[in-house]
Simulated scan of single mutants.
Amino acid sequence: MHGIKRTRLTQEDIQAKKQREQTKITEYLALTEQVLSRKKHKDWSEDALGLTSKLLQVNPEFYTVWNYRRNILLQGLFPRGTPEQNNQLLVVELTMTMGALKSHPKVYWIWNHRRWCLENIPNGPGEAQEDGADGWKKSAWDKDLFVVEQMLDVDSRNFHAWNYRRYILSNMPKPRPEKTELTYTKQKILSNFSNFSAWHQRSKVLSSLWASGKLGESKSKENEFKLIRDAMYTDPHDQSVWMYHRWLVGNDISQEVLEREIETIQELLAEQPDSKWCLESLVHYKRMQLKNHKEKVDTQVLTGECQRFLAHLGELDPMRSRRYEKIASQLNTI
Score class of each variant (00 low, 15 high):
Ser194Lys: 15
Asn192Cys: 12
Ala133Val: 15
Pro60Tyr: 13
Lys138Ile: 07
Arg176His: 04
Arg20Leu: 02
Lys39Arg: 13
Glu21Phe: 01
Met98Tyr: 13
Gln88His: 15
Cys117Val: 13
Ile121Met: 09
Gln307Lys: 15
Val107His: 11
Trp210Thr: 01
Gln129Met: 08
Lys291Asp: 04
Ala128Cys: 02
Pro105Cys: 10
Phe146Glu: 05
Ser191Gln: 11
Thr10Ile: 04
Lys296Gln: 13
Glu256Phe: 07
Trp141Gln: 03
Glu33Phe: 04
Glu127Tyr: 02
Ala270Asp: 15
Lys5Asn: 11
Lys294Tyr: 07
Glu295Ser: 08
Arg322Asp: 15
Glu149Arg: 15
Asn67Ala: 05
Asp230Glu: 10
Glu93Gly: 05
Glu119Asn: 02
Thr234Leu: 06
Arg114Ala: 13
Ile334Gly: 04
Asp317Trp: 09
Leu145Ile: 10
Gln57Gly: 02
Gln300Thr: 10
Pro273Val: 12
Gln22Phe: 10
Asp131Pro: 12
Glu280Val: 08
Arg114Met: 05
Ser197Phe: 07
Trp136Arg: 10
Phe193Met: 03
Ala211His: 09
Gly99Tyr: 12
Ser218His: 03
Phe225Gly: 00
Thr26Trp: 12
Arg229Val: 01
Gln85Trp: 10
Trp141Asn: 00
His41Lys: 15
Asp131Met: 14
Asp238Gly: 00
Leu55Pro: 06
Gln11Gly: 00
Ala48Ser: 09
Leu279Trp: 10
Lys179Leu: 02
Ala328Tyr: 09
Ala30Gln: 12
Met1Arg: 14
Ile72Leu: 00
Arg115Lys: 12
Ala161Cys: 02
Gln239Asn: 09
